[in-house]
Design a protein around this nucleic acid. Structure first.
Lengths: 144, 144
DNA sequence: AACCAAATATGATTTAAATCATGTTTTAAA
DNA sequence: TTTAAAACATGATTTAAATCATATTTGGTT
């Protein structure tokens, strides 16, 4: 569904949010460990997220990553996915046609449109705060 | 969503069905051309489909691939996907956790379950015959 | 000002998926 | 019974995604 880059990106963002929620700034090493991801690869992903203004980074000693508490409920899953994977998931043809469209549809065009709309709605309506809550309460997990 | 292998596989199967519908056996070259796929790669995929009993192959001069008309409405999209991509699409975690489950869920577990169920239902309820019809009537396309 | 811990930037390597190439087997027809 | 057209089988190569490695910049601390 999503690229691994995107999967790690979502997990990292949720972890950062769950920590920021209790005013805890976190560093790369900690993030990579807590979401079980390769450190150097994760660093790159965090930079994308940082440039996309989804997370905030602070350089230097005592630096790290954080997300302002008041922004959490505004950040939707779709922003993370869009920043990393682009709109591939939402617009790409289910059968890989490069010019699949309403006027030139593949055989599963309409059926897929519905699935993709479901997905898009879900991503648009899910915010970081709710996801971070599950981690904080121990109901959901970011590794294994 | 699906691997390219699977996308080509679905397209090839639909094309074969649309031709078998009018008692037309088709060969590799023709298939690859009509669905715009690399020939040698397509050959491998057709072998998977053949071994999975989704398509029928005939060797030798005048041979090719076909699907018995009476089977078409019985073959569902999900069989093709399962034969090529396995159950990855239906069971895999949305965030890439290897042991995501009801008792150890990722933060989007329930939300994704719904999407995946939608997808599975669609694939289970879509048969080859209906898809082949769209091609035959010129309403849908298998290339570009 | 010097130092160190952090993020940032960039490029190299590895891995898996996709693609290509080549030889083997089967079968109808001449 | 030879030939040719087809599928089948297997391995090599290419490509893109994922991962690793290394050097640079930044900013607080001493």
């Amino acid at each position: 569904m999503f690229s691994k880059t995107c999967e790690y990106g979502i997990r990292a963002t949720i972890f950062i949010a769950s920590q920021s929620y209790q005013d805890n700034r976190v560093g790369l090493k900690d993030i990579a460990e807590k979401i079980d991801s390769p450190e150097a690869f994760t660093a790159k992903i965090l930079q994308i997220l940082s440039k996309s203004n989804i997370i905030h980074s602070i350089k230097g000693v005592g630096g790290g990553f954080e997300i302002p508490k008041e922004k959490m409920s505004q950040i939707k899953l779709i922003q993370i996915v869009a920043a990393i994977d682009g709109d591939r998931v939402f617009t790409g043809c289910g059968l890989g046609l490069s010019h699949c469209s309403e006027t030139h549809p593949c055989p599963v065009h309409d059926r897929f449109k519905e699935i993709r709309n479901n997905l898009a709605n879900m991503l648009e309506n899910t915010n970081l705060e709710e996801l971070a809550m599950g981690i904080k309460s121990g109901d959901t997990f970011l590794r294994y």
